[in-house]
Design a protein around this nucleic acid. Structure first.
Lengths: 133, 133
DNA sequence: TTCTTGACAAATAATGATTATTATATAATA
DNA sequence: TATTATATAATAATCATTATTTGTCAAGAA
């Protein structure tokens, strides 16, 4: 009945709390976001535990680490291939689930073996648009 | 005769050295790369000067800050719109100058005003492919 | 049940990139 | 050349992240 059984690592309360927070979360939280939220339930939770849990989940492919925000890492529990639309003002991130076919001509690929791609769309979110009057 | 005349900020020797290093540079250097190189000519050069120069150039649109490398900022003096192909092993970066038409259906855009996009291709560079035998 | 072992959590320290501060030096301009 | 604003260098501070250490707990062996 436990959906995390197959993770192959110990399911501690702290880890469960992190998993629950991430479950279905589409806000692309930073480690701090995770920490803040999970701390409510587990006040003794330390930052290091958050990082190590996220790292463990990353290794198991349950979470993606996004390199979108220059200031901090963001994590994404949505592991299906998708793209992101980022607000250049407030750095909020929205998922884009479209498929795009992106080929690189061999002469531009410089001998690389292509493994995948990720598109970052930039824009201004509705909230920030309002603030700018 | 000076191609940097129009920058609208003081042209110190240090800044000129940074500009010369960036000119035509396609290696997407980090601040440390810039510092190391420019230090050869200006041994008293400080890291802070590198950062502030890069920041100033960024504001003037002469340099782009890349958020590709989770470990550090990378800078790109090639300000024409283009994309990047990154080696997941060594983090080397190659430019991709193709144009791709990428539309987001309005219902996915969440009310964002789209301003641009950037594609990150992932792969393994020839050097790292060899190392893996 | 008790012992042993290994993984985990928490606290804390350490690291590394970046930014801020401050006193001095220098470029641009009158 | 003098003035003035801005840049430099040195340094300290900050912030996110990683490493270390010590104590705790859980599961299996004796």
């Amino acid at each position: 009945m436990n959906k995390y059984k197959d993770l192959g690592f110990k399911l501690t309360p702290q880890r469960l709390a992190v998993l629950n927070y991430l479950e279905g979360n589409r806000s692309h939280p930073s480690a701090e976001d995770v920490y803040k939220n999970v701390s409510k339930k587990y006040p003794t939770m330390s930052f290091a535990t958050v990082y190590s849990t996220l790292e463990a989940l990353k290794k198991k492919g349950k979470v993606l680490e996004l390199t979108i925000d220059p200031a901090r890492k963001r994590f994404d529990p949505n592991t299906e291939p998708h793209h992101h639309l980022i607000c250049v003002k407030c750095r909020s991130i929205v998922d884009i689930h479209r498929k795009y076919s992106l080929d690189i001509p061999a002469n531009e690929a410089g001998g690389f073996e292509i493994a995948g791609n990720h598109i970052e769309f930039y824009g201004i979110c509705p909230k920030c648009k309002k603030k700018d009057l």
